[in-house]
Amino acid sequence: MAGIDVKELMEEEDTQKGKFLTFSMESKMYGIDVRYVTEIIGIQPITEVPELPGYIKGIINLRGKIIPVMDVRLRFKMPFKEYNDRTCIIVIDIDGTCIGLIVDSVTEILSIPEDEIVDPPEVNKTGNNYIKCIGKVGNEMKLILDCYKLLNDREI
């Protein structure tokens, strides 16, 4: 019987540390820790489900697995934008819960050194519930999302 190679698992975890999948919405750049990302797919037919919050667009069938999809623009109270060929669904897994995040477009996977990641400013804590930290990349800033807060809302 083959055992689990703990050293290999730890090395895999280390290679993902400090790596973020970045995407854009409006003119802002956001990031998600790559540890949570399982895949990126194009927009698909979405089946609406009644009585869900407006930002939950419905469900998709991904190779036989039913996954709810959230329009991140609507979650952030941005205006709805028609989906196009750049629109993507980022499928994430948070502690066994899979959900698709609809974003305007995916840009790249970035490595951000730990010393270039800072906490969000304390200006208005209610306005940045979903921002875990800010990654500084050259002169640009990437808003790193807290996937747990994005998903663990009382409404879902």
Rank of each mutant, 00 (worst) to 15 (best):
M1D: 14
M1G: 15
A2G: 08
G3E: 13
I4L: 07
E8R: 11
M10L: 15
E11W: 01
E12S: 07
E13R: 15
K17E: 15
K19A: 10
L21D: 08
M29Y: 00
M29P: 02
M29R: 12
Y30A: 05
Y30C: 06
G31D: 06
D33F: 04
D33L: 04
V34I: 15
R35D: 10
T38E: 08
I40E: 05
G42R: 12
I43L: 06
P45D: 14
I46C: 01
E48W: 01
V49N: 08
P50T: 15
P50A: 15
L52V: 11
L52R: 15
L52A: 05
L52T: 14
P53E: 09
G54V: 14
G54E: 12
G54P: 09
Y55L: 09
Y55M: 07
K57V: 13
I59Y: 02
I60L: 08
N61F: 03
L62M: 14
R63I: 06
G64S: 07
G64N: 10
I66K: 03
V69S: 04
V72W: 02
V72P: 01
V72E: 05
R73P: 01
L74M: 13
P79S: 10
P79R: 11
E82Y: 07
E82A: 12
Y83W: 08
D85P: 04
I90W: 01
D93T: 00
I94F: 00
D95K: 09
D95Q: 12
I102R: 03
I102W: 03
S105H: 08
T107P: 03
S111I: 07
S111G: 07
E114A: 06
D115E: 11
D115C: 00
D115R: 05
E116C: 04
I117E: 02
V118I: 14
D119F: 03
P120N: 09
E122C: 04
N124T: 10
K125W: 00
K125N: 08
T126K: 15
G127W: 06
N128K: 13
N128A: 06
Y130A: 01
C133G: 13
G135H: 01
K136C: 04
V137D: 03
V137S: 06
G138M: 05
G138K: 09
M141V: 15
K142E: 01
I144A: 01
L145N: 08
D146K: 08
C147K: 04
Y148E: 15
K149H: 07
N152R: 08
R154I: 13
E155I: 14
